[in-house]
Amino acid sequence: MRKNKQTWSVKTLVFLALLVAIQLVLSRVLVIDLGVYRITLGTIATVLAGLWMGPVAGGVEGGVADIIGCFMKGYGVNPLITLSAITWGVVAGAAGKLMAEKSRKVKTVIMCAGIVISGVVGTLGFTTAGLVMIGSNFYAIMPGRLVQFAIMTPIYCVLTSLLYFSPLTSMVVGNVRSANLQKKTV
């Protein structure tokens, strides 16, 4: 009898772990924490995981980094905020699939569109809902979250584009097989 086992390569897992570690340092250590507003560049690691390794890997990286980060800071895990982190990786991974065989300008537009969609759905949607769920007043926090979104989105687009179009991408993608779950028969 055949058993189907789904696996990722060791290299893929190592790069995902490295991106989780980078995410944790950027979002939990090198952060400006203003209560319901957090200024951080950690999201870029999740976006790059999605772009480089696909939507499943991007979602896993975002979710794992968020859960570990909650334990590091002593927060409880909020499922809506974790879903927001997953959304960043999944949407970026979907954008990455659309970028194949496109010019650099088109890739940049698709990448930035993915970042904007992730920000609207994840940050303004799920994260705000998660904050309201734990007691924040929607009308009190939404104006500040909109300002944060307007400031951070171009920064995310520029930094992600710089990193994606650097030699780093060929190093990672050249050493990592696609992070699609592959069926392996035993």
Rank of each mutant, 00 (worst) to 15 (best):
residue 48 L to N: 02
residue 48 L to S: 01
residue 48 L to M: 15
residue 49 A to Y: 02
residue 49 A to S: 15
residue 49 A to E: 02
residue 49 A to C: 12
residue 49 A to L: 07
residue 49 A to G: 15
residue 50 G to Y: 03
residue 50 G to M: 09
residue 50 G to F: 03
residue 50 G to R: 05
residue 50 G to N: 13
residue 51 L to H: 02
residue 51 L to F: 06
residue 51 L to I: 02
residue 51 L to N: 01
residue 52 W to K: 03
residue 52 W to V: 01
residue 52 W to T: 01
residue 52 W to H: 07
residue 52 W to G: 00
residue 53 M to A: 14
residue 53 M to H: 13
residue 54 G to A: 12
residue 54 G to D: 08
residue 54 G to R: 10
residue 55 P to M: 06
residue 55 P to G: 05
residue 56 V to Q: 05
residue 56 V to K: 07
residue 56 V to D: 02
residue 56 V to Y: 05
residue 57 A to Q: 14
residue 57 A to F: 09
residue 57 A to K: 07
residue 57 A to W: 03
residue 57 A to P: 08
residue 58 G to M: 04
residue 58 G to S: 09
residue 58 G to W: 01
residue 58 G to C: 10
residue 58 G to I: 02
residue 59 G to S: 08
residue 59 G to Y: 01
residue 60 V to C: 02
residue 60 V to H: 00
residue 61 E to C: 13
residue 62 G to P: 10
residue 62 G to Y: 06
residue 63 G to N: 05
residue 63 G to A: 09
residue 64 V to Q: 10
residue 64 V to N: 08
residue 64 V to P: 08
residue 64 V to R: 09
residue 64 V to I: 15
residue 64 V to D: 05
residue 65 A to Y: 00
residue 65 A to V: 01
residue 65 A to Q: 02
residue 66 D to G: 00
residue 66 D to V: 00
residue 66 D to C: 02
residue 67 I to G: 04
residue 67 I to H: 05
residue 67 I to Q: 05
residue 67 I to T: 10
residue 67 I to K: 06
residue 68 I to C: 07
residue 68 I to L: 14
residue 68 I to M: 08
residue 68 I to Q: 06
residue 69 G to P: 04
residue 69 G to L: 03
residue 69 G to C: 05
residue 70 C to R: 07
residue 70 C to I: 06
residue 70 C to G: 13
residue 70 C to P: 04
residue 70 C to T: 10
residue 71 F to C: 12
residue 71 F to L: 15
residue 72 M to F: 13
residue 72 M to D: 05
residue 72 M to I: 12
residue 72 M to N: 08
residue 73 K to V: 10
residue 73 K to F: 04
residue 73 K to C: 08
residue 73 K to Y: 07
residue 74 G to R: 11
residue 74 G to Y: 08
residue 75 Y to Q: 14
residue 75 Y to V: 06
residue 75 Y to C: 11
residue 75 Y to A: 13
residue 76 G to I: 11
residue 76 G to K: 13
residue 76 G to P: 04
residue 77 V to C: 11
residue 77 V to F: 09
residue 78 N to F: 04
residue 78 N to V: 09
residue 78 N to D: 15
residue 79 P to A: 12
residue 79 P to S: 13
residue 79 P to V: 11
residue 79 P to E: 12
residue 79 P to Q: 14
residue 79 P to R: 13
residue 79 P to G: 09
residue 80 L to R: 11
residue 80 L to D: 07
residue 80 L to W: 12
residue 80 L to A: 10
residue 80 L to P: 05
residue 81 I to N: 02
residue 81 I to M: 11
residue 81 I to V: 14
residue 81 I to D: 01
residue 82 T to C: 14
residue 82 T to V: 15
residue 82 T to Q: 03
residue 83 L to Q: 05
residue 83 L to F: 12
residue 83 L to I: 10
residue 83 L to M: 15
residue 83 L to R: 03
residue 84 S to G: 15
residue 84 S to W: 01
residue 84 S to E: 09
residue 84 S to L: 03
